[in-house]
Design a protein around this nucleic acid. Sequence first.
DNA 1: ACCCGTGTTTGACGTGCGTCAACGTAGCCT
DNA 2: AGGCTACGTTGACGCACGTCAAACACGGGT
Lengths: 247, 247
Amino acid sequence: MQMKATVPITTAQLRSACSQCNLLELCLPFGMDEQEIQRLDELVGTRRKVKRQQPLYRAGDPFEAIYAIRVGWFKTDVVLEDGREQVTGFQMTGEMLGLDGISTETHSCNAIALEDSEVCVISYSRLEELSREFEGLQHQFHKVMSREIVRDHGVMMLLGSMRAEERLAAFLLNLSQRFTARGFSGVDFHLRMTRDEIGSYLGLKLETVSRAFSRFQEEGMVEVQQKHVRLVDLPQLRKLIQHPVGR
Amino acid sequence: MQMKATVPITTAQLRSACSQCNLLELCLPFGMDEQEIQRLDELVGTRRKVKRQQPLYRAGDPFEAIYAIRVGWFKTDVVLEDGREQVTGFQMTGEMLGLDGISTETHSCNAIALEDSEVCVISYSRLEELSREFEGLQHQFHKVMSREIVRDHGVMMLLGSMRAEERLAAFLLNLSQRFTARGFSGVDFHLRMTRDEIGSYLGLKLETVSRAFSRFQEEGMVEVQQKHVRLVDLPQLRKLIQHPVGR
DNA sequence: ACCCGTGTTTGACGTGCGTCAACGTAGCCT
DNA sequence: AGGCTACGTTGACGCACGTCAAACACGGGT
């Protein structure tokens, strides 16, 4: 059902492969020297465009590659037999998708584009080969996986121990930091996901998310208009997380 | 503060290093051939005993090694500035600890022994070296990391979308399966962790955990006596997860 | 054998978030 | 421009789980 819009790479496009890519410091080749990165261009054989709402992969799909997001946004989610959905993450430019597939050679979650997006397809077997050759690549890849584990622990903290408004504050601050790291405004941005998706990620209902936004607005911490968000008072948001209730 | 009970390996002990270890199929060397595994014995330079309630490592400790549990139980947890603690996992024999440290070269969580335990210390730099040499080791290591990511997604599902009794049922079934995989009884076992720790892991208060246990007992699904648990009706427990409330 | 500290159970009550429902808003199609 | 559809907001109310408190169970140390 899913359109595999896999395009073979042309000579022209190859110039913008890893060695020419401006995502370098966010992506796999970080820490490798120039020469090594040249060799890396072998790694990304193809690109793939994914239209909004379309899956990059689905739970159950055989695992063959991991993906680096070039442009766009994705969500990953897990679905229970009874239909309950849990969003496990939102991924943006320079972030990696598909690591869940390595363990069973089958993807265990869905990756859905939140807007028209494009990814680099990184053959996993090729990646293993090359990372046996290049220490820097190996190390960076391990770091990427480890970072995902650490991130997951943060989400557990959020889901297990924080209250609704703390969760939303943490979520907004996390987005802020990731936008900043990419050279975008960290205080003024556009949400790619719905209230329902945010709610699923944060373990809340969409109404609760909406109400929390409204309260932040009342308190003068945030200006919200639908999907557009302005963080007016970052310190206050940070304080909210560290000093939960009234204390 | 923490006692580094690191013991240099003796010739006698070496015989029970990887090549002689009965955890083979659970641990890193899985999938490697005999010859390769012999070489692996270089990997585990030391063992380390950790007493009950003592840390194997703490958040902030420099990362140098990962650990394979030989005997015993651990919990990992993350602590917020304001003191709130989130247990992120319980690890038993044959499972790996320390993967969180790779990303920043500093551990990001605490690993505490739940009973007197012993781990194999696997030098991380040595592991990277050897896994550049041995494809099987490399692949297995990647699988271990990926498995952790998939597990984490399961916990997010649990914390974000399930109700108290479902969470506890899922937790018990997960323990059951892991005991079974190790040749122990999957229906009759001893919990190493307190209600408080279970609650932290499941995003519940200890009283709620205790009440859920009591309800399971009333319903005839489980027999509980303090830390001793007997799963009397596995199918019913499974049903509880798939068909949450009354539906 | 006793005490003491830690962990567990159970009850009564409170509350944060979920549920249900109505209405508002924005973008898209004709 | 109008109407459809998906998404977002807000209010009233209910309930699952948290909070607080008291009593009980167990194991380790003297």
